[in-house]
Design a protein around this nucleic acid. Sequence first.
DNA 1: AAGGACGGAATGAATGTTCACTCCAAGACG
DNA 2: CGTCTTGGAGTGAACATTCATTCCGTCCTT
Lengths: 214, 214
Amino acid sequence: MNVHSKTQAAPRQQIDPTDKRDRILQATIRLISEYGFHGTPVSMIAKDAGVGTGTIYRYFKDKDALVLEIFQQVNCAFKKTLLHEYVVSQPIRDRFLHLCRDIFQYGIHNPYEFKFIEQFYNSPYGTTLRREKLFCNCGDPGQDLPLEQVFAAGKEQNTIKDLPLAALIALAIGPIVFLVKDSIVGLIQLDDATINATMAACWDAVKVETGTSK
Amino acid sequence: MNVHSKTQAAPRQQIDPTDKRDRILQATIRLISEYGFHGTPVSMIAKDAGVGTGTIYRYFKDKDALVLEIFQQVNCAFKKTLLHEYVVSQPIRDRFLHLCRDIFQYGIHNPYEFKFIEQFYNSPYGTTLRREKLFCNCGDPGQDLPLEQVFAAGKEQNTIKDLPLAALIALAIGPIVFLVKDSIVGLIQLDDATINATMAACWDAVKVETGTSK
DNA sequence: AAGGACGGAATGAATGTTCACTCCAAGACG
DNA sequence: CGTCTTGGAGTGAACATTCATTCCGTCCTT
């Protein structure tokens, strides 16, 4: 960008304003999502980010701090994605499908972040976080996930099955996580038709049956 | 060799026939399911198994061989569980629910093995295996998973939705894996009622709608 | 020229693997 | 029967490697 590099045209440092910090974050997400925390040495992150290993410690106290910051950042971004264009006044089914689609899209367009979050949540550290219900509230303390709101509202008006919340979430998110992971590793190709049909099937799983059951 | 090796009553060695080997396997499953491959040093496995570190290398070439053997063993045992009392002549829905129940039960009763398999499948090595479709065929080469058979049969008779196989599997297994993992880390308590209702909901997801769709 | 950002060699701790040794059960020999 | 020999399972300290973190010389900016 810019060129004349030097001669002051670029106001800050020469090449990377805070570029390096971002490169480190991105490389870490990518590598840890593939090899796991203990499977990715700091040296590997440095090489992938194109910086010296020492530089990483200029920006982060240690490896743990680096990973924790990534989790908080990615987790917040993901939650914001879910709330994007989410309208509480819409019918339960529409809101549900909207959320499903957002999760699908997020996973497909942010595969590394998606796998990173999943790994983190299933790590001992992530489990502790979940148990303590701390999460990252992103400045909206105490607010439930929108999916939980939808289920609560749906149960009241007898649109959603009367199941434990954990089971409903599993029915909604489980298949999506499963499919997206397969898609990320290249085992399948997710086209729009499949995504839509799968979302609809997730709805069938959580909705109250309308016709005869069986 | 042989010789009546004495009186034959106690055929083999005195105390530990293959006891240690098993203890090593069990410890590895438990620890890796919790801390991951790179997160569990061999020394930790040795201590947990109550053997010297060197002993592990009497039974296994290296750490990789140890883990690979566990995967093959556990994977085969799991598949056998799925085929237990599985009757092809039963209706699609009954076979489906039977398989779902088996997966639930296996996960609840073998939490370490369950998490181990999940981790392995999502590791780079496991992904390669899946892509190569090699798996562990347990002596039944080419035989599909029973779940795949059920879906194939169900599609033919228009009982199961016409979705890609991967999507159907995700709809069936995704929620179960999700719930069992939560149950293993103690976030929820899975009672029979919840299990049954969740299985039924999985069926709703994959079955062809009978009443009006909406 | 001063000061800080940067890279990467240096460092010490941790990990996977090896190896020289111990120990004990099971024949061999009297 | 009792003692000696032996072979191999078992062990954990030692070794080589890898890792996270630190440190210092270099270079860029001002």
